[in-house]
């Protein structure tokens, strides 16, 4: 039973960590645009920019 003495605090600490992460996400505005976040995952960040794609539109094709 003495194991409870440190296991419960550890469990609580891990839970608090999760809560803190949520509060951070909330404060940094990650819950302000849920639809946008779902779409942004489809964007390529590493696409070559600049000269090869001067209009920023050519690669948008279907849209």
């Amino acid at each position: 039973m003495s194991g409870l003495l440190y296991l419960i605090p550890i469990a609580l600490f891990l839970g608090l960590l999760g809560l803190a992460a949520f509060v951070w996400a909330l404060r940094s505005g990650q819950f302000e645009d849920l639809d946008g976040a779902a779409q942004r995952i489809l964007l390529d960040d590493d696409e070559p920019q600049g000269p090869r794609n001067p209009e920023g539109r050519a690669s948008d094709g279907g849209c």
């Binding site: 948008d60 094709g61 279907g62 849209c63």
Partner: peptide, 11 residues
């Protein structure tokens, strides 16, 4: 590629 991203028409 983004070509297949959506069928959203050009506004």
């Amino acid at each position: 590629m983004s070509t297949a991203l959506s069928a959203c028409p050009l506004p």
